[in-house]
């Protein structure tokens, strides 16, 4: 069973330490939420896991081997990275963008094969963007664009999907749908790491939550273990109200921590 491990990662930008000795193990079959306050190092960590970030210390290992030991195209088939804020420089057609997810399977100027098309079709249906075929990206709403980019990442049929804030610009319905889709991918045998800001989405969908604070792992475990009043006050500086619905917990960020006691 393949796995992705971060071992003692440290990343510096100038003099400031963005990641400080972060270790993390990502087995397959789980949806892992990466949370933390702004500037905690979430994006840097997920970029490092994708092999896109230079690290000062430590290393990222895939199946026990350093990422740099892998052929880049091989890595492209195994680890997909969904960047924050869907960037597209040219007004390409939607299906063209999704097909770009097949890039790691092609050599030089090779054309798409039959199965590349069927994978493209399937992931477009999964991400609910089939009806957008023929549209150009500059005509899409933010949510549509995000789902197109998600389909692009899925089209690589990766073992590991690393998604940086994929639900940030989505309405509640599409947030639920995208999280459900990511959970399906994970439970179907893939591993998904998703950067989130929404504590409830993490609580509801993630099998495991990694909470970063100032470049360090503040907590790592099941949502119920991580999202405690004490930890959330420590990391975010907030008071949280907890509740329960259909036997499942939810939480509501209520106020700045310690506001009442003064």
């Amino acid at each position: 069973m393949s796995r992705l491990d971060a071992l003692g990662l440290s990343v510096k930008f100038g003099n400031s330490l963005i990641l400080d000795d972060v270790s993390l193990s990502i087995p397959r079959g789980k949806l892992i939420g990466l949370l933390g306050p702004n500037g905690a190092g979430k994006t840097t960590l997920i970029r490092a896991l994708a092999g896109l970030q230079k690290v000062e210390q430590g290393q990222v290992k895939l199946d026990g081997e350093k990422l740099s030991a892998f052929d880049q195209q091989d890595l492209g088939r195994r680890i997909a990275y969904l960047a924050q804020g869907a960037e597209c420089s040219w007004p390409l057609k939607v299906e063209r963008i999704v097909m770009l997810g097949r890039t790691p399977y092609l050599y030089q100027n090779e054309r798409l094969r039959e199965d590349d098309y069927s994978v493209t079709e399937r992931v477009m249906r999964e991400a609910d963007v089939s009806h957008l075929v023929g549209r150009t990206v500059n005509t899409l709403s933010g949510g549509e664009l995000t789902r197109v980019m998600l389909a692009r990442a899925l089209a690589s049929e990766p073992e590991f999907l690393l998604a940086d804030e994929p639900v940030a610009s989505l309405d509640p319905l599409h947030q639920l749908e995208v999280m459900g889709l990511l959970a399906n991918v994970a439970h179907g045998g893939g591993a998904v790491v998703v950067v989130l800001h929404d504590l409830n989405l993490a609580m509801r969908f993630c099998d495991r939550v990694v909470l970063l604070s100032e470049g360090r792992v503040a907590a790592d475990g099941e949502p119920g273990e991580v999202f405690t009043a004490e930890i959330l006050e420590q990391v975010y500086g907030i008071d949280v109200k907890f509740g329960e619905c259909e036997g499942k917990p939810w939480l509501l960020p209520w106020q700045r921590a310690g506001q009442n006691s003064e």
Binding site: R47, A50, G51, L52, Q72, Q73, D74, L75, G76, R77, I79, A80, Y81, A83, E87, C88, S89, W90, L92, I97, L100, G101, T103, P104, L106, Q108, N109, E110, M149, R152, S156
Partner: peptide, 23 residues
């Protein structure tokens, strides 16, 4: 003329192109 695939992937940004296996 041999740069087709790389330039297509680069439309999605440097990080994404690299994650798609483009050197």
């Amino acid at each position: 003329l041999g740069c087709q695939r790389g330039l297509d992937a680069l439309a999605l940004g440097e990080d994404t192109a690299r994650s798609l296996g483009i050197n």
